[in-house]
């Protein structure tokens, strides 16, 4: 297989010894079908055992390896070196998050927000197992299926200009997940979630820049989810105003 040697510029930060992040360059001989993650693994195994990054599945489903690649948030296991121009590739930790070490970011904020939107089925009464499954037609499934596909890679948070400005913003992935459950025919938790998401930190903070949807590696389209939430929230507000309010099902 043909080789192409690249300069892999990696942002390093080891809190015990570095005052601030700096860039280290490694020369990496790449196979033609390598992804950026393969180059990082090469560095770790052959050049510098101290480099830290997260990864696991190498097939774009576990969501561990989101990072900035040439300035754009992306999965390093799905970004092919052959698709990047030039012989220099720059990798950095996802922006908008504190750096824990090297390419590893602190995810606490996202995890807290994920939990806050109540991403689980909420029902007044749960159905006994003996009664079997809920019926859900393919059309009903289609209403929310796309929004179930988020792998929590955080690329959308790194791309979001609002999150950069307002750290309290719940953000694309977590809001989309709230919408996913709201749209599920089995769920009755819209009102509970509305208290969390129809707020200034929630959907109303989104300026519809669409950056989240552009970078999403799984085509979840968080921007559209948030716009749909804004519409249903507004409609419900007007319905309440004219006395037609009731529980949304």
């Amino acid at each position: 297989m043909s080789h192409r040697t690249i300069d892999l510029e990696v942002m390093r930060y080891r809190p015990e010894q570095d005052d601030e992040p700096w860039v280290q360059t490694y020369k990496v001989p790449c196979e033609e079908d390598w992804v950026v993650l393969d180059a990082l693994i090469y560095v770790k195994d052959n050049l510098d055992g101290s480099l830290s990054y997260r990864w696991s599945c190498h097939m774009a489903v576990c969501g561990s390896c989101g990072m900035m690649i040439n300035g754009e948030p992306a999965l390093s296991c799905k970004t092919f070196i052959r698709d990047l121009p030039g012989d220099v590739i720059r990798v950095e930790p996802l922006t908008n998050f504190p750096i824990e070490r090297d390419l590893v970011v602190v995810m606490d904020d996202f995890i807290e927000k994920l939990q806050r939107v109540k991403p689980y089925i909420i029902r007044d009464e749960s159905k006994p197992i003996s009664e079997g499954e809920h019926r859900q037609t393919p059309a009903q499934l289609k209403k929310f299926k796309q929004y179930t596909l988020c792998i929590n890679c955080l690329c959308c948070y790194a791309a979001c200009p609002q999150y950069a400005l307002i750290p309290e913003f719940i953000g694309p992935a977590a809001l989309t997940l709230a919408h996913r459950y709201n749209q599920d025919s089995r769920d009755q938790g819209w009102e509970e979630r509305e208290d969390v998401v129809a707020t200034n930190e929630g959907i109303w903070d989104c300026a519809f820049a669409d950056a989240c949807s552009i970078v999403c590696p799984k085509h979840v389209d968080p921007a559209s989810a948030i716009q749909q939430m804004k519409i249903s929230s507004t409609l419900s507000w007007y319905k309440n105003l004219i006395g037609l309010g009731g529980k949304k099902r």
């Binding site: 019926r135 929310f144 089995r186």
Partner: peptide, 15 residues
């Protein structure tokens, strides 16, 4: 399924 797993469905809504 009750916890929300998006199982693929038949036309009549069964899994």
């Amino acid at each position: 399924e009750h916890w929300g797993c998006p199982w693929s469905r038949e036309a009549d809504g069964r899994v």
